[in-house]
């Protein structure tokens, strides 16, 4: 059942992104950034948590989840009533994924030359 819910949610969001790509002049970079901002905004209004509960991996595989994770860790910092904690905490939960992606990209570029 969770598989079906993941499939439907991610498929629908990708369909929406494809519609935006076909009918406007926005490039891929614009659309991805837009969805990260949407993810962070939905997280601010406590909607994204509920989306993850219902749709599981459909919501966590997308780049919108990146915005959600950034906001959640910044919120942990804001809750302590010390403003600097926002800056200290903000990248804590996304550091795993981004570090792994960077390391893997570097290792691959050391091994392989670009091919068309």
């Amino acid at each position: 059942m969770t598989y079906l819910m993941s499939f439907l949610f991610a498929g629908t969001v990708c369909l929406l992104a494809q519609l935006i790509y076909e009918f406007t002049k926005l490039t891929q970079g614009h659309i991805v950034t837009l969805f990260v901002i949407i993810g962070a905004s939905l997280s601010f209004f406590n909607i994204y948590d509920k989306i993850i509960e219902i749709f599981h991996s459909g919501a966590t595989s997308l780049i919108m989840n990146y915005g959600h994770m950034l906001y959640q860790s910044a919120k942990i910092g804001a809750k302590t009533n010390d403003y600097f904690q926002i800056f200290i905490e903000i990248m804590k939960s996304t550091s795993g994924l981004v570090s792994y992606a960077i390391i893997l990209a570097l290792i691959i570029s050391f091994i392989k030359r670009p091919r068309p």
């Binding site: 970079g29 991805v32 950034t33 990260v36 901002i37 962070a40 905004s41 997280s43 601010f44 780049i63 990146y66 915005g67 950034l70 906001y71 860790s73 910044a74 919120k75 910092g77 804001a78 809750k79 009533n81 403003y83 926002i86 800056f87 903000i90 990248m91 981004v98």
Partner: peptide, 19 residues
């Protein structure tokens, strides 16, 4: 780069409002 930059910017903005 723009994904990371604007993700951090918008999260900081919302976190400031929350704070």
């Amino acid at each position: 780069g723009s994904v990371i930059c604007y993700g951090i910017l918008i999260s900081w903005y919302f976190a400031t409002i929350y704070y």
